[in-house]
């Protein structure tokens, strides 16, 4: 069986005045059926552009893409029938009620809420108490659920979610990912983009994007395993001075702040940690503590960016 989403050397640029912006540069990837696939990258990496091409809203300059076996340019009509798209910005009618929004989109897809009630039930029951309320008056998390319901109302086979958790609180984010998991169990292929590296671990496979290029595609575990060097977390009383001293030390390769720690790698693979500690103590650092840690996706992202 062919893959749910396939992109082959997709290229897209925008003309902005006299400068040309490469939004997507030679993007190729495949998403298997039933997979929860993540596009991870900072703002401006090209995630939204890629989504717009895959959902037939935009035409690529070069390259080809298929969604659910249909080619995005010539067979866009078929694709529109079977994909669900939730744009990053809330794009439902704020002046229509929850109920009206859902039945509006259901009708556009030639179906009704009743027909697919079972399918969207898990999500819809959470907003059903507010069904008479106008969409504009919902909270951020509720809006998100309404948008998801509208994107799911026609039982799409592939669901595209553009930064669904941006600007959503931690609890709602967790809930949202749980919902995605349960949708995945119903057999939907889900492609989700996010700027949050910690969410990468919740995906089956991720593509790390930066400046319109895909840097790596693998399972979250596969990506962290590829981290080339041992990684250390270091903490001391004066973190700013610590970073300064570490970065000026020639034995240190990289040093990035991560929460309350700095993550560092060394130029030598078998760098003796005691000698580093000794130098730092000599420079007057108090409460020094260094420990070896497993790299996260974010560490890998930083590492890949510097290549």
């Amino acid at each position: 069986m062919e893959s749910a989403v396939k992109a082959e050397r997709v290229y897209k640029n925008f003309q902005s005045g006299k400068t040309e912006i490469e939004a997507l540069n030679n993007i190729s990837f495949e998403v298997e059926r039933g997979e929860l696939f993540g596009l991870i990258g900072p703002d401006g990496a090209g995630k939204t552009t890629l989504f717009r091409i895959l959902t037939t809203l935009m035409i690529a300059n070069k390259g080809n893409a298929w969604v659910d076996g249909f080619e995005v340019v010539s067979q866009y009509k078929e694709i529109r029938k079977r994909v669900g798209y939730m744009p990053g910005r809330f794009s439902l009618y704020q002046d229509l009620s929850v109920e009206e929004n859902i039945s509006f989109f259901a009708t556009l897809f030639g179906t009704t809420l009743e027909e697919n009630y079972e399918f969207v039930k898990d999500i819809y029951v959470q907003i059903e108490p507010f069904k008479k309320r106008r969409a504009g008056a919902l909270s951020g998390g509720m809006k998100q659920k309404l948008a998801l319901s509208c994107a799911l109302i026609h039982r799409p086979s592939v669901l595209f979610l553009d930064e669904p958790t941006t600007g959503v609180d931690a609890v709602s984010r967790q809930e949202f990912w749980d919902l995605l998991k349960s949708l995945q169990h119903q057999g939907i292929t889900i492609v989700v983009s996010t700027p949050y590296m910690d969410e990468a671990n919740l995906c089956d496979r991720v593509a790390l994007m930066q400046n319109g290029k895909i840097m790596d595609i693998d399972t979250p575990k596969g990506i962290t395993q590829k981290f080339p060097k041992p990684l250390w977390a270091i903490i001391a009383a004066d973190m700013y001075k610590l970073m300064h001293d570490l970065r000026s030390d020639e034995r240190v390769d990289t040093c990035y702040p991560f929460g309350q720690y700095h993550h560092i790698t060394f130029t030598e693979l078998n760098q003796e940690i005691q000698s580093i500690e000794k130098t730092l103590v000599e420079k007057g650092h108090a409460d020094l503590s260094i420990q070896k840690i497993e790299p996260t996706i974010e560490d890998c992202f930083m590492e890949l960016m510097n290549k």
């Binding site: 959902t55 809203l57 994909v83 794009s91 509208c150």
Partner: peptide, 11 residues
Amino acid sequence: IGTIEQINVTP
């Protein structure tokens, strides 16, 4: 307000 985007992905 972007609603046209949501309309445009429908058939």
